[in-house]
């Protein structure tokens, strides 16, 4: 079968790639666009390591076809920092030592950013339920939750 040509916007930039009809957005981002910050933990939508925003909506990129990105906007962890300046969430994860191995970190960051865009003042319970789709095996989530709450507070004040 012939490949599909896709024109899309990734982290604000116009991007084109060729993909197979059955290929996932995750594989296209990693293999064709070079955005290996998007991680694969399960390939079945259970771990959240591949989280990206698609037209502002949080999705598992392993459950989206690469062809579905046509004409839409994709945001990944690589688009969070502004040049040398880290996003508040990135800085807070560092400040709170909220990562150990770091494999879930990109997905957690993208998911947390999507949460704070919708709900700038979440309760701890709301943060925990929003991030329930992002598995972390190292931290027990404690420091991640604290970092996201702290980032939310700082972003509200800013």
């Amino acid at each position: 079968m012939s490949k599909i040509h896709v024109s899309t916007t990734i982290n604000g930039d116009a991007v084109e790639y060729l993909c197979e009809p059955s290929e996932t957005l995750l594989d296209a981002l990693r293999d064709h666009v070079g955005l290996t910050g998007v991680k694969e933990g399960c390939g079945s939508g259970d771990c959240g390591a591949c989280s990206v925003e698609l037209d502002g909506r949080l999705v598992c990129s392993c459950l989206v076809l690469a062809a579905e990105a046509e004409g839409r906007s994709v945001n990944t962890v690589e688009g969070m920092a502004d040049g040398e300046k880290l996003h508040v969430l990135q800085q807070k994860l560092l400040d709170h030592a909220a990562l150990q191995c770091g494999i879930c970190t990109p997905g957690i960051l993208v998911a947390a950013k999507a949460l704070l865009e919708k709900n700038p003042d979440p309760t701890e319970t709301e943060v925990r339920y929003w991030l329930a789709g992002n598995l972390c095996r190292c931290t027990g989530y404690d420091k991640i939750i604290r970092a996201v709450m702290d980032a939310a507070a700082e972003m509200r004040g800013a």
Binding site: R30, L35, T36, G37, V38, K39, E40, T76, V77, E78, M80, A81, L86, Q90, L93, L94, D95, A97, L99, G102, I103, T105, P106, L109
Partner: peptide, 21 residues
């Protein structure tokens, strides 16, 4: 003390290279 970790920036920006990267 509790300084930021040296591999932290790479891991929050997606630059860190893991096994499949």
């Amino acid at each position: 003390t509790r300084p930021p970790r040296p591999d932290g920036i790479d891991k929050v920006t997606g630059r860190a290279l893991f096994g499949a990267d």
